[in-house]
Simulated assay, not measured.
Amino acid sequence: MSSVKWWARLSAAVTGVALTLVVPAHAWAASRGVDGLVIEAVKSPRRRGGLGFLPILGGVCCLVVVGGIILALVLISRNRKRR
């Protein structure tokens, strides 16, 4: 039970730190008009480079990460059932 309390406190602290950093940065970006630059960057046509396989590489990387998370969850759940 104490480990659950410890993880809950740690996650609350990390969330607080993240919000402390993200909220002012977001307010600064909104006041400077940076959101307009982002919208224009999204609307502009993308130039294709010579490396056309990079989106495929990104998809493979994403699948590897998701597979690793699923594998970790399966291994953790198996260790709990043995007790």
Rank of each mutant, 00 (worst) to 15 (best):
R48A: 14
G36V: 00
V66I: 11
C61W: 03
H26L: 14
S31G: 13
R78K: 14
G16W: 09
V23Q: 02
R9T: 05
A30R: 11
I76H: 10
P55F: 03
V14M: 07
L54D: 02
W6H: 08
V65W: 03
A8N: 04
A13Y: 06
R47H: 09
L63R: 12
I56G: 03
V66K: 00
G68F: 09
A8C: 09
I70D: 06
R9M: 10
A18M: 15
R83F: 10
G36D: 08
L21V: 02
R32F: 02
A12Y: 10
I56D: 05
G68W: 10
K5W: 07
R47V: 07
C62S: 15
V17P: 02
N79A: 14
I56Q: 01
G16C: 13
L37K: 13
V60P: 01
A8I: 05
G68M: 13
V66P: 01
S31E: 14
K43G: 05
W28T: 14
L10C: 07
I76G: 06
V60D: 04
V66L: 04
V64R: 06
R46G: 13
S11W: 07
V74M: 07
L73M: 06
F53R: 00
I69V: 15
S3Y: 10
S11V: 07
A41W: 09
R32A: 05
L21A: 13
